[in-house]
Each structure stands twice: as C-alpha cells, then as structure tokens.
C-alpha cells in the first residue's frame, strides 16, 4: 500500500515529466480537462488540471471533474511514477477511468508520451 504522500510525489514526478515535454504541451493545447485521482484503499484524492497545455497538480478533489481515475494506492503511485503503463490495469479492471472513451484514450496517450519507451 502506498501513502497519500507517495501518491502526491508520483503525481509531481508525472507533472515534471509532462512539463519537460514541449511537444506534449503543444499537443494538449486544445484539451482543457480536470481529472480527479482517487485511491480506493486509503483516503487520498488529488486533482490534475490541464489548461492551455499546462499541467498542474494539487491535493484534494475538484468541485467538478471531467475524468475520474480510481485505483488502489499502490497502482496509482506505480502508474504516475511510470513503473507501469495504464493499459494493463485498465484492461484488467484494477484501474477504473470514468469519462468519455476519447478522453480515456487521450489520458493513456499522455502517460505513454511521458513514460513510453
């Protein structure tokens, strides 16, 4: 089990990877979304916000989310640190993403662009 602080650290690593990737920022300039990241086994909520291609991270839930990412704390930390890709846990149900299919593909894409080989 990962702690809330570990999830925060993983999301900050994700943000750092994102912000270093200028091409990814260009690709996402049109995609303004609020993402709730919620652990299923500990009380832990974070908000990822994409606006004009910039990604910000903060602790706590947003008033309204376009997408909700739910998994156990360990999976969330592994995912945002890039130790695992989202596809497998999404396909086997360990990772649940609530939102439109297009947005889910887009989130998968961002993660692969940051951590993909």
């Amino acid at each position: 089990m990962a702690s809330h602080e570990e999830i925060t650290a993983s999301l900050l690593a994700f943000q750092e990877g994102y912000n270093k990737n200028e091409r990814l920022k260009i690709m996402n300039r049109d995609w303004d979304r609020v993402v709730l990241v919620q652990a299923s086994d500990i009380p832990s909520q974070h908000t990822l916000e994409l606006r004009n291609g910039e990604l910000s991270v903060r602790e706590g839930a947003p008033p309204r989310a376009d997408l909700t990412v739910i998994a156990d704390s360990e999976t969330l930390a592994d995912l945002f640190y890039g130790d695992i890709t989202p596809t497998e846990p999404y396909m086997n149900g360990t990772l649940k993403i609530i939102g439109s299919e297009d947005d889910i593909v887009r989130l998968d894409f961002i993660s692969l662009m940051i951590w993909g080989e």
Binding site: I26, T87, D102, D108, F109, G116
Partner: peptide, 24 residues
Amino acid sequence: AGIPYPIRTVKELEELAAKLLPEM
C-alpha cells in the same frame, strides 16, 4: 486520438509509434 498534432515525417511517425503502439 483526437490530438490536433499533424505528423509531418516518416521519422517522427516511427518515433511516436515506438512510444505509443506497444501499449495502444
């Protein structure tokens, strides 16, 4: 993927494919 990013060269296509396709 709905991403307004035109790929202009075969080289960039290959590079992005290597990042994305193994999982996608």
